[in-house]
Design a protein around this nucleic acid. Structure first.
Length: 708
RNA sequence: GCCACCGUAGCUCAGUGGUAGAGCACACCCUUGGUAAGGGUGAGGUCACGAGUUCAACUCUCGUCGGUGGCUCCA
């Protein structure tokens, strides 16, 4: 006699066990027809799920009208579509072995083991989709079949797929009591797959599916294991939603920092210079310099001291820090002294010998620094330190080089040479908490000033089972407690993740998403008990004995490359006035106003603004268009009327119409206030009508980045 | 590094086994125009690079380099 409680609180009692589909039918025939699945006591199930005791039940349906599709509905549809795609792939490649096919954030994938020499190319997508669409059109029911563990395993062994056997073993390890198969259609007649479910009732409920992309993957994510082909697809309840998803992807690509970076001349990555090495062009250099100035002022306020250190250092330095040879694979090779090199050549020394000598320390060389900490540590040790000196806070915009795998590089978000807004704090145990809070405050100031509202905070802890971490476990425990406590002071929820710590200590990271939905770490604060040991750091305490300081590594931007790459996408190129490479452009209506225009321009230059005068031989409309595409915050259009009255006619980015004339001095004053306050609204206040008829669609909406 | 795709003018892209085309940008001329493209003329390419097949390769094949999306990695 199960009693079912529905989401609205209403209850229905049945005198026998009933399926979720039965519950839906009991509520209404229309609902039963539309239903995709259900949640029973919070667990996602299919419509064939039998309820035999009291339960809370929510029926999952496709969205109505323009409502957004629920995550549950998408999950059911996409997992089902993964089966349909797998069947289609096996129709096209009969020898393909299936591995694993889950729904993911924006669709689903299926990992496939293809026979030697066979590959799926994008040209095959159409054929695969053709099969998929046939299966969807046939509206075949998903039929579940359970087998007890031993006969299920026997069946799998008979079929001979080590991948499916592995999946079954994992399911059993996870507590599965039976093994289940889902047939897409009639059992023993149609295609089936080992699967825990749930699925939509029939393939027809997958409204629209598409194969998106193909990539390589590794079995169990292990590069030394089998190499698999991962086919990505996506699915939606209807064609319209699929189309709008594809459209959103297209839109997101338009705000890709690589696209905007080129359009606005912000940076260039040049083949001839090298992969992952950024050239900061003049406009981008301004943005970078402004950000540096901004954070520098905060650092001064917080008692940091600025230092400069070289780009290379002796191997011995990095041996002591432990970075060499531990991270050798991701470093540019060492630079060897020319005389030593010639001697080695005379001795007939080969590459392997050279590498050995470098590793053993028989030969010294220099390494491009991949981090600044060893250098800052040597500044710390350059004089004796007393507890009265602590905390010592050494800051540097330090450029480091890491030889990242070529396939990992991308625009400014992952590069091989980058500048960290780095600092190292040397402090006592009792100062640790406050210092960490100070570091987190810096990140918050940055995010607030730039209007970055959607980010995740991750506290990276060590994985106790991994050998990757160095140092004393009790130190680790203290450091992890300190990190969590500091994260608590943020007043924003954070997530602890084991295995995400640096090898020398736990950390707090700030994670954001780029235009196409990928996650990137920006700011970071890391506690380190390890390097102070390795470098034997000390200070003299009030008890006149030596003590070991603790180090904090922190970079609130992370790196200027990645941060600005992200920022370009965040603002879609429409930087706030204080960051904008060009803040205001003066456009004379015609040559007749050229003289007044240059007076206006000169006044802006005089007040320290970044400005240009566009008196080119183009029509006004054309010059406005060019300036608007450059995302310049303010355009001053001046003609005879303005010259007469001493005014400027203002056009504001994002409003895109004439807001009317204002005295030049008022404009300059407001603009200066806006820039010096790092605000984005002072000039607008001159124009009470600015917020009316605001065409908001044309202004960048930073937080409404559509996901893929 | 692995898999797939891509590489034609500064940019965005057409194109064909018989030595190349558009739009924008650029230069010059006309136009002096009050809020998102005025008109004309011109210049600009070893079709990423190297090898092979062919009478002939930008086009087909292989390799290299570079890019993109994933995977793995990310001190």
């Amino acid at each position: 006699m199960p009693t079912i409680t529905l989401p609205d609180g209403s209850q229905r009692t049945f005198d026998a066990p009933i399926t979720t589909g039965g519950v839906a039918a009991d509520i209404g025939a229309g609902l039963a027809k539309a239903a995709l699945g259900a949640r029973v006591d919070g667990i996602l199930v299919g419509l064939d799920h039998l309820i035999d005791s009291d339960a809370e039940v929510a029926i999952i349906t496709p969205p109505r009208g323009k409502d957004p599709c629920s995550d549950d509905a998408l999950r059911l549809i996409r997992h089902s579509a993964a089966h349909v795609m797998a069947e289609a792939v096996q129709a096209v490649y009969p020898d393909a072995m299936l591995v694993y096919g889950p729904p993911v954030e924006n669709g689903f994938y299926y990992d496939i083991a293809l026979p030697e020499g066979v590959s799926i190319s994008t040209d095959d997508f159409e054929r695969i989709e053709l099969h998929m669409n046939e299966i969807i059109k046939a509206d075949r029911p998903f039929t579940r079949c359970d087998m007890d563990l031993s006969s299920g395993m026997k069946r799998l062994q008979g079929e001979g797929s080590k991948y499916k056997i592995d999946n079954a073993e994992r399911a059993i390890d996870g507590g599965a009591e039976t093994l289940s198969w889902y047939t897409t259609g009639t059992p023993d007649e149609n295609w089936d797959d080992l699967c825990g479910g749930p699925h939509v009732p029939s393939t027809g409920h997958i409204g629209a599916a598409k194969v998106m992309t193909v990539a390589a993957s590794y079995w169990h994510g292990d590069a030394s294991s089998d190499h698999l082909t991962r086919l990505y697809g996506t699915a939606f309840p209807d064609k319209k939603r699929l189309a709008s998803h594809l459209e959103q992807l297209e839109e997101a690509r338009k705000r890709d920092h690589r696209v905007i970076g080129r359009k606005l001349g912000l940076f260039k990555i040049d083949d001839m210079v090298g992969q992952g090495l950024v050239l900061w062009t003049p406009a981008g250099a301004i943005v970078r310099q402004e950000l540096q100035d901004f954070i520098s002022a905060e650092l001064t306020r917080q008692g940091y001291q600025q230092v400069f250190t070289p780009h290379i250092g002796k191997l011995e330095l990095f041996r002591t820090s432990g970075h060499f040879p531990y991270y050798q694979d991701s470093q540019y090779p060492p630079i060897v002294d020319p005389d030593a090199m010639s001697m080695l050549v005379e001795e007939g020394c080969n590459c392997a010998d050279l590498s050995n000598k470098l590793q053993e320390g028989d030969l010294d060389g220099y390494l491009l620094k991949s981090m600044n900490c060893p250098m800052h540590i040597r500044i710390y040790t350059s004089e004796p330190r007393s507890y009265r000196d602590l905390p010592v806070r050494l800051a540097e915009f330090g450029t480091v080089y890491r030889y990242e795998q070529s396939g990992e590089l991308g625009g400014m978000l992952r590069v091989r040479g980058f500048t960290q807004d780095d600092a190292h704090i040397f402090c006592t145990e009792t100062q640790l908490q406050d210092e960490m809070s100070g570091c987190l405050e810096l990140v918050q100031i940055i995010f607030q000033t730039l209007g970055i509202e959607s980010f995740d905070i991750r506290v990276g802890l060590r994985d106790p089972d991994s050998a990757k971490y160095v140092g004393d476990p009790s130190n680790w425990d203290r450091a992890e407690v300190a990190c969590k406590a500091a994260a608590d002071t943020l007043g924003t929820p954070w997530k602890a993740e084991t295995g995400e710590a640096a090898f020398y200590g736990p950390k707090i990271d700030f994670i954001v998403k780029d235009a196409i939905g990928r996650s990137w770490q920006l700011g970071t604060v890391q506690v380190d008990y390890n390097l102070p040991e390795r470098f034997d750091l000390s200070y003299v305490g009030s008890d006149n004995t030596t003590h070991r300081p603790i180090m904090i590594h922190r970079a609130p931007f992370g790196s200027l490359e990645r941060f600005i790459g992200f920022l370009i996408e965040h603002f879609a190129g429409a930087f706030p006035t204080w960051l904008a490479p060009e803040q205001v452009r003066v456009l004379p209506v015609s040559e007749k106003s050229a003289e007044y225009a240059s007076t206006v321009h000169a006044a802006l230059v005089e007040s320290g603004r970044r400005t240009t005068l566009d008196d080119s031989n183009e029509r006004l409309q054309s010059r406005i268009r060019i300036a608007a595409e450059r995302r310049i915050p303010y355009l001053l259009i001046v003609g005879p009327r303005d010259a007469e009255a001493g005014t400027v006619s203002v056009r504001v980015r994002g409003i895109e119409r004439d807001l009317g004339a204002t005295p030049l001095n008022d404009f300059v004053e407001a603009l200066n206030a806006e820039v010096s306050g790092r605000r984005d609204c002072v000039v607008k206040q001159l124009f009470p009508s600015a917020d009316q008829n605001h065409d908001s669609a044309s202004e960048a909406a930073p937080e409404s980045v559509p996901g893929p």
